[in-house]
Computed example of a mutant assay.
Amino acid sequence: MKKYVFVFVAFALVFASCGTVQSIIKSTFPYTTTLVIPASSGTGTTLTAVSQGSSFDQNFTKNGNSTRVNNVRIVSAKMTAMVPSDFNIGNLTSAKIYMAKANGDGEVLVASRTDIGANSGNSITMDIDNSHFLDELVREKNVRIKMVYQLGNKITLDASLRVVLGIAADPVQ
């Protein structure tokens, strides 16, 4: 009899932990995009780069999963140079990242960096703005990511920057 109780408790723990792990995995996901800074961009003026964001879980809205989460918020933001890979992000003096619906409606500031050092290298962590919930945006099939930036130094090649926005959500109870 003790053997059956032990097996039952073991199975219960395994199933409970699988559900917990799945919940954690499903409620934290990145939105990524690649933004291009043209070599023709001028220095000292405010410029804009726009691209469509994508999530590794593209079926998030298709399967109705987005209605099972709420309190969706930004938890991390990172910018990395892709082409050229040795592009110094320190060529930017500031950058602000916004998320919006595909048509630009509902734009929300999600990350920024105003103190980019001249020798920052090819990757920086941005300051997040999690004062807004992004519930409506993650329910959209397409999300637009916009970067508003200023160049401090003239660049000679187009630069492609990958932006990864970590998004977290709470499961609906």
Rank of each mutant, 00 (worst) to 15 (best):
S51P: 09
M126F: 08
T48E: 06
V72A: 01
S51C: 15
M82S: 06
Q52V: 10
L157D: 15
T93I: 11
Q58D: 09
K141Y: 13
L134Q: 13
I128C: 09
I25N: 14
V50G: 03
N130G: 12
N65C: 07
T61V: 14
D115S: 15
I37W: 01
A118S: 14
Y31N: 02
R144A: 12
L92N: 00
D129T: 14
N119D: 14
Q22Y: 15
I145V: 14
L157R: 12
I37D: 00
A95E: 02
N63T: 12
R144H: 05
G117K: 15
G104V: 10
V83R: 08
V75R: 10
I25S: 09
S51Y: 02
M79V: 03
A49N: 07
M147H: 04
N88S: 09
S112I: 14
K146C: 12
R139H: 04
S76N: 12
S94W: 04
N103R: 10
G104N: 02
N103W: 04
G121H: 07
Y31L: 08
T45V: 14
S17N: 10
A159S: 14
E136T: 15
L35F: 07
M147G: 08
I24K: 09
L13R: 05
T156P: 00
D105T: 10
L13S: 10
A81N: 01
I128M: 10
T93C: 06
D86A: 14
I37Q: 00
L161M: 12
R68T: 02
N122G: 02
T114H: 15
I74R: 00
K141G: 12
L157M: 15
I25C: 04
N63I: 11
G19V: 04
F60R: 03
K141F: 08
Q22P: 02
S123W: 15
Q58V: 06
V72D: 01
A159N: 04
S55Q: 03
L137M: 08
L109M: 05
F60A: 02
I97E: 01
L35S: 01
S23K: 07
N65Y: 15
V50W: 04
I116P: 00
A77Q: 00
V69H: 01
S120H: 07
D129H: 07
T67R: 08
L134T: 04
G90A: 00
V138P: 01
S112C: 12
R144V: 08
S123H: 15
V21G: 08
R113T: 10
V75D: 02
T33M: 05
F60W: 13
S120E: 10
I74S: 00
S17K: 13
G121V: 04
V143L: 13
V69L: 01
V50Y: 03
L134N: 05
S66Y: 11
I128Q: 02
N63P: 03
G44A: 11
I155M: 13
G106F: 07
L35W: 01
N103T: 14
N153W: 13
A81Q: 01
T32M: 10
L92I: 01
M99Y: 09
N63G: 07
C18H: 13
N142E: 15
T20P: 00
V143M: 10
